[in-house]
Structure formats: structure tokens, C-alpha cells
């Protein structure tokens, strides 16, 4: 099966949900013009990244009627969508979230598991940690979503792989850092290495959408990409500039790669569980 993937490498306006919704709708129209089946937006695409004390104002709720959610549900009758937003649950906890919309419904919501709170990052101050990592079925096969720091930890990606995800949908608001003599910032090189490694090690598709623009002095570097199950870049977006990137992927490549390289067949999650149980027991304090 071939799926036309769109990556909306956009510049969200900080704290302005109404404005960003319009930008999403524009990208949806442009993506439909190019025959996109699944359009992925960056982390917190509805709000911008450093929302700080704006969190309660910009949050969206899925447990009660919400105009913005309703609009995306409606749009998802035309193409599948991954949208980044601040999610408030019934008990007033705020999460960094992705929703996968398809055929008029929310198919899955992922809450960011790992909230960087070090160096320039301060996410735990404002957000609750997500508590589960689950693959989910889409009309294009089984997928998993992770948000930025989530995929710097190997365990969530591994768990999604074991849960049946053949396509990893990653998005981020990754601020640039590490200017040296390289042709890219060292932070970009790092993320690209991780993505490429996941493609190779999990013999899966790795789809990554990263935002652009500036918030205070931080620059977001874009460079959205798609890595195929052979670990090669199928698509590599421009850095720093807004773009709608479109790339067809061939899901049959999963079979061809795995026939050659049966890493998934030979993987031993039972062994992982036994050893993890032992390690956890031995290290319980």
C-alpha cells in the first residue's frame, strides 16, 4: 500500500489558538491539493512551544464539546491528521499531546511521556507526564506517536514496535543549539541520527515533523524527514524555513526489508521482560 505523507513544517504563533487553527486549515487545503493522505503537524502546533503561564488559556478539552476539536474531526473526513496541542483532562491536568484524527473521529491521543526540565527546558513546571505508550490501528496500518524527548528515550519507540507499530509518527518543537563547523547544528545531527537508527533497528518507517520559527532567542530548525525501513532518508526537509513537505511511502517496503533483515521476527520481548523484572527487583530501594 502506498500512502502520501505530508509534513507541515510550520511556524505556530505563540499562544494564539485561533490564528494557528487557520494556519492548520491552510495546510490542510494545500495538502489535499497534493493528494496527501496523512498530514502531520509539529509538537504543540496549535499553541507554540514555550506557552508557560498561557497553558490554561490555550488548552483544548476532548471530554466536552470543543470547537477546534470539532473542526479537526470534520477535516479528518478528508485526510488523516496528527495535531499537536495542550490537552486538559477531566481533572484539570495539562499534557503536551498529539491527536490522530481520522474519518471524523479521534483515533488516538498520545500524552508526552518525557518532559525535559533541564538546561533551557522547563516542561515539568507546566505539564503532567503522560502515562502510557500505545500503538493504534489506522486505515494505513498500525502506528505509534511520540513527541520530541519521548523519542530520545529508546524504550517508548521499542514498546511501540513491540505493540505492532510499523510507522513511527514523531513530532517536535526542537530548538537549535550547538553551532560548530558542521553543515547543521549539532542538535539537528543528533536527532537525525536517532531517527535514522530507529528506521534501521526497527525496520520501520520513521516520520518526523519539526517546527520552524523563533521564540524569544531560540530558533526551531525544521529539517522534517522520513526514514524508510532500510534506515535511509526518503525525505529531508529544508532547515529553518516554513514548508509543506510531501512524500509517498510504500508500506510494502516493510515486507521486503524484513524478509532480508528479520530483526522483528528475532526480537525477544520475553527476554527483555524477564531481565527488566530482575533488574527492577534487584534495584528496588
Amino acid at each position: 500500500m502506498r500512502v502520501n505523507i505530508g509534513l507541515a513544517q510550520m511556524y505556530p504563533k505563540l499562544g494564539d489558538v485561533a490564528y494557528n487553527r487557520e494556519v492548520h486549515l491552510e495546510h490542510i487545503e494545500r495538502a489535499l491539493d497534493q493528494g496527501v493522505d496523512l498530514l502531520v503537524f509539529p509538537e504543540l502546533s496549535m499553541t507554540g512551544y514555550q506557552v508557560q503561564d498561557l497553558v490554561p488559556e490555550v488548552a483544548l478539552r476532548t471530554h466536552q464539546p470543543d470547537e477546534t476539536i470539532a473542526i479537526f474531526k470534520e477535516q479528518s473526513k478528508r485526510l488523516d491528521l496528527v495535531v499537536g496541542f495542550v490537552h486538559e483532562d477531566e481533572r484539570g491536568r495539562f499534557f503536551i499531546a498529539n491527536a490522530y484524527f481520522s474519518q471524523g473521529e479521534i483515533v488516538h491521543i498520545h500524552h508526552k511521556l518525557y518532559l525535559p526540565t533541564y538546561a533551557m527546558f522547563d516542561e515539568s513546571r507546566y505539564f503532567a507526564q503522560g502515562n502510557s505508550v500505545r500503538a493504534f490501528d489506522t486505515r494505513f496500518g498500525r502506528m505509534g506517536m511520540l513527541i520530541c524527548e519521548d523519542f530520545w528515550h529508546v524504550s517508548p519507540a521499542y514498546l511501540l514496535w513491540m505493540d505492532g507499530a510499523d510507522v513511527l509518527l514523531l513530532n517536535s518543537s526542537s530548538p537549535g543549539r550547538g553551532l560548530d563547523t558542521g553543515d547543521r547544528l549539532s542538535g539537528s545531527r543528533w536527532v537525525e541520527q536517532v531517527n535514522q537508527s530507529y528506521g534501521s533497528m526497527f525496520t520501520s518507517y520513521v516520520i518526523h515533523c519539526n517546527r520552524v520559527g523563533y521564540e524569544d532567542g531560540k530558533v526551531f530548525w525544521g529539517g522534517s524527514s522520513i526514514v524508510d525501513p532500510n534506515g535511509e532518508f526518503l525525505l529531508h526537509g529544508t532547515y529553518f524555513e516554513e514548508a509543506l513537505l510531501v512524500q509517498e511511502i510504500d508500506l510494502n517496503q516493510l515486507h521486503r526489508t524484513r524478509a532480508r533483515l528479520p530483526l522483528l521476527r528475532d526480537e525477544r520481548p520475553g527476554l527483555v521482560r524477564r531481565e527488566l523484572n530482575r533488574i527492577l527487583q534487584e534495584n528496588l530501594t
Binding site: 505563540l14 521564540e215 524555513e241
Partner: peptide, 15 residues
């Protein structure tokens, strides 16, 4: 504990 970015108001930026 009144924490907002310098960029949080005003117009949208442009790359």
C-alpha cells in the same frame, strides 16, 4: 511566577 516569554504578545514573527 508571572511567566511569559517576551515574544508572547504582538504580531507574528516571520522567518
Amino acid at each position: 511566577d508571572f511567566l511569559y516569554l517576551r515574544d508572547y504578545t504582538g504580531r507574528h514573527g516571520s522567518v
